[in-house]
Design a protein around this nucleic acid. Structure first.
Lengths: 237, 237
DNA sequence: CGAGTAATTATGCAAGTGTATAATTACTGC
DNA sequence: GCAGTAATTATACACTTGCATAATTACTCG
């Protein structure tokens, strides 16, 4: 049934190999990427073993060779995606010489700009969230990635406040991190779900302004033309 | 194969009817509820026509009698769920004699307390969001429910600000509504996804505090014991 | 009470699902 | 170069899926 392409120059001898052996990590990654692409494009129902295998250019048996089940592959894909998103948001913060306040700004803005904020990421994330209720493994992984992100944010907030001479007690920091995380998540989600509803860079600016209001620091100072007539009425200090 | 229960008192005559004819709206609602329950408990993949029919106590053929396809039923279920959630959040605001500020508080708190904020609602919502990318119908419905919610919030914010003598221009109102909506969404989502991570009422309080910070009004005044030492440093006015 | 009709059930079907197992095939170390 | 082995393919199987169609059945209206 299946036709293999042989080399035209040597029609008789030298048959082209029918497949190549790749490293385990390479194959796993390819399968994960294929699964993520399908889930994002056609929903969780579109990620069948056959479709995943075809997109990864292998036969479906290979999935079970590298993952104990399809469910196992999906879980791995979730972990891969979430860790990548956290990393994409947190990495630009690495520069140690800049202000703590500036690092906080970078973090917030990175989470609300491409490639972190886009339809594909949001769709993927929602697919996984929807499985939280009936999948303990997914729930545990969600908890881990959530705390990971929130704790990073809390550290940045604490440092920025200390730098500004306004240190806050731990309970306040916790609350600020929860709220800040929520704004970022909410804006990120809406921006990904309805990209046409917002102008370019609008959500990042709103995010900076909002997180600033929540922690009590002005984070969006280099915003373009603004009539400071009706800005937030907290210009003290 | 299937056994029908006959009346024990009259074993020979009077055969009990094998089914009852219900009104279209009743049957549609039953099917929608069944679909929602299954999606919430077992994910979108658990909502098969057979499972839905069984949970609604009918045979599967009836689904196609009331909905043109399974996809059609799922879309109806989404609309039903989202409208109900918006209504549950917005209805308590109806009282016209109270302060505008108080109405805003009620709105925010209602969205961050049971029954609006719970795992079932969040799971359901995520299932639908995940289909936004490949389903135009779902996307249109999401847009409608999103703007519906956000516009209600914007009105409440505008009224509360006017009442406090701090009216804001339309562009500011838009931004406040977007940000406020985002905090509420984010907190709602996290509270539903990780209920154990927050204390009782904590998220509602954080929501009030955050929306207050965003719009420039103090909304969480009747919060219990708080050392006002390190509260937001904007106590002027 | 008795026909007509719409609601509901019963049944069947072709396609697709995840997984198991056996048959190939490419690479590795001697 | 050549055996051994692990990666990869090929194939089969039992089961589920959504949907269509025909057969029942409960209710309505005269």
């Amino acid at each position: 049934m299946q036709v293999y392409n042989y080399c035209r120059k040597a029609p008789v001898s030298e048959p082209r190999p029918k497949f190549r052996r790749e490293s385990a990590t390479q194959r796993k990654e390819a399968l994960i990427q294929a699964a993520l692409g399908l889930i994002a494009e056609k929903g969780i129902g579109g990620a069948t073993v056959r479709a995943i295998a075809q997109r990864a250019d292998v036969t479906q048996g290979l999935i079970r060779h590298y993952f104990s089940s399809k469910e196992d592959l999906i879980a791995a894909a979730y972990e891969y995606h979430m860790d990548q998103m956290t990393e994409l948001t947190a990495t630009p913060v690495a520069a140690p010489e800049v202000t703590a306040r500036q690092r906080l700004c970078t973090f917030v803005a990175a989470g609300l700009t491409s490639p972190v904020m886009d339809t594909r990421s949001v769709t993927l994330w929602a697919s996984f969230i929807s499985s939280l209720r009936h999948d303990n493994n997914m729930r545990a992984m969600h908890q881990r990635t959530y705390y990971n992100f929130r704790n990073r944010l809390e550290v940045l907030i604490a440092e920025a406040l200390a730098e500004a001479g306004k240190p806050a007690p731990k309970s306040e920091l916790r609350r600020m991190a929860i709220a800040g995380n929520a704004v970022i998540d909410g804006l990120w989600m809406e921006g990904g779900a309805l990209p046409a509803a917002f102008e370019n860079g609008e959500l990042a600016q709103i995010g900076l302004h909002s997180v600033g209001a929540i922690v009590g620091l002005k984070l969006d100072q280099n915003a373009p033309e603004q009539t400071d007539k009706n800005l937030l009425t907290k210009e003290e200090g």
